[in-house]
Design a protein around this nucleic acid. Structure first.
Lengths: 195, 195, 195, 195
DNA sequence: AATGAATGAGGGTTCATTCAT
DNA sequence: GATGAATGAACCCTCATTCAT
């Protein structure tokens, strides 16, 4: 009885594993936020204070690790978009969300710099969710007459998806650039006043 | 003096070297225009009909080769921007150039897909030249009252530089996206109608 | 004496250890009977419902585990050979045993597929025992005039040892092949009719 | 003109590459003939006096290297079987070939020790050719009344294929074992004299 | 000068073993 | 004592660069 855990304890040392998973994720995220970081398994592991094999085992492969890292970055963003959609008028939601999106991306501006050509299902799904939420915002705002009606909301959403990340990743990053992006984009999205 | 040719001896077989340089450049440019091309030295050399060592030797390293290739791609674009600046009213030049820029980038959407973290001086310089030309267009258009005055032309230029490439490289590429980008951007750049 | 238990204290939880040993052995044996099974420590442990460290600890290393597993497979075969020797006329014993040996090997055709170069003392000893038993069968059958006398029984036994396994492991396995093997071998072992 | 080769020379340094290919093949073959040799790319390369990457590049992968090595070993054997078939009466061809086959295999007794589960097309094809040739020998000998008619030649051929290699690889290798194998096998293949 | 070939460095992954719980 | 997790070593492979021809 002295060594066995109480009746509540199925996970014996799982806690450490979870912690190391998070360490590896955090290390990957940190490296993604640094320009030109190498993002090799070895580098990530060293940053996390772990062995290279450990991080591979914890995720089942480098791709899965990167997928999990990007997903961890993206998940709260998507959630925030959904929350805004539920709580706020579409156009206000769009304005609010865009600002937050850029601010968030700017804090992790190197995200998916080296992710081209990889199979990242969680990331793909989250990006789709994000684009979908933005599309709903735009659709609603358009119905409210707040956004121009001559462009397809899906296309506008894709446009935002493509450019927001680029602005966030711009070198050098500057608040002025973000401000200009938001200003131009939102003004450009307003309904046409005159031909 | 022993190794350098005398004044009577211009480079003897430099013609071959120049030709091979151009072959390698053309091959690299062609590969950059194909999604998912491998862009290894071996691949480039095979495409050029040359040996791998030849292309390395012709440029002194892979980075320099890529730099030269991207520069070759970018150079006419920059030149076009300068020509438009010289010949056309600023705002019209801007509108014209933006459309051409996107079309060009879309035709070479793989450019600097794998260029992160590399030291590419020629590319950097040309990009600066391009951004500078756009900045002049915007400055002129602003003086003509064609572009909003509440944003710094340099910042707008940086914004265009950051987003144009992203739109051109978007996956999947679509004319609608390009159209929406140009529409929103240009409308967003118009002077404010109401404070 | 200090480490060995006193006469009043037999091994306390040795029962668990013994049980785990048997679980691991059974798992290893089961995996050896499946074509292309991976036979890693992890795989064996999972099949046994144990932790990987447990199976290693129970045997002191993977080699010892495999040795014990093969030995467990071979032991009843050797015992059967000894029983037949004791109970049956040599030549009949030989005919009977050969059929059973092939059938047994065919049921565990993956045995020692991945065992090359390993140090497996128990397996080696059992194989020697098996070869010895067969040698006795042949020697007795030769004395009875049932087997040709121009070949050394030890050599014939080695021949059987080498070929029986190969036939059992042949790809693809077929009853016809086994039948042909037994037919040709036994006929070839009969005494020479004509010089 | 001084440095360029004469008009006959398309392969400039291909000779060295061919030589290194052969060095690598010879090293692989040599290692296959040693019990317990590790057969890693590194080991083979070191034995050949080459870098590991060189042997990989020369063959395009480890599997292809092993395939080529085994094929090189097997090719003259298959050729010899075909020659015997063409020149000699079937049963004599069979007797002759079996002796040579064993002798040859015995000289390379570790061949395909670690080859299970690999995709080796050349090896597979050559083994099929060998089995086919033996099958023809047996079929012809059977028509001549030299080999028993109650067993399918294809099955007998498979039997020989399975056992000959095993005998050649037996540990320890001994001339007596080979002699016994040939004696028992050939006698066992003779037509049935009495029920 | 051009090049096919060689290679050292580095990548991701697997696995038997060790360790902390 | 049992175990999930950690890990160092080893494997195969790729590639930019260097070398011998």
């Amino acid at each position: 009885m002295s060594t066995s855990p109480g009746p509540q304890g199925p996970p014996k040392r799982r806690a450490d594993a979870v912690r190391n998973r998070e360490l590896a994720l955090a290390a990957a995220v940190a490296l993604m936020s640094e320009r030109g970081a190498s993002l090799t398994v070895e580098t990530i592991a060293r940053r996390a204070g772990l062995g290279a094999a450990t991080v591979v085992r914890a995720f089942g492969g480098k791709d899965a690790l990167l997928d999990a890292a990007v997903a961890q970055l993206l998940e709260p963003v998507v959630q925030r978009a959904r929350d805004l959609l539920a709580e706020t008028a579409p156009y206000l939601a769009l304005r609010t969300f865009l600002g937050e999106l850029i601010a968030f991306q700017a804090a992790h501006h190197a995200v998916n710099e080296q992710l081209t050509g990889l199979d990242l299902p969680a990331t793909t799904a989250l990006r789709a969710g994000l684009v979908g939420a933005v599309e709903e915002m735009i659709g609603g705002a358009r119905r409210d007459g707040e956004v121009r009606a001559d462009l397809d909301p899906a296309v506008i959403s894709a446009l935002i998806g493509a450019t927001a990340l680029a602005v966030a990743r711009a070198e050098p990053s500057s608040p002025d650039l973000v401000h200009a992006y938001l200003t131009v984009l939102l003004d450009g999205l307003r309904p046409h006043l005159a031909a």
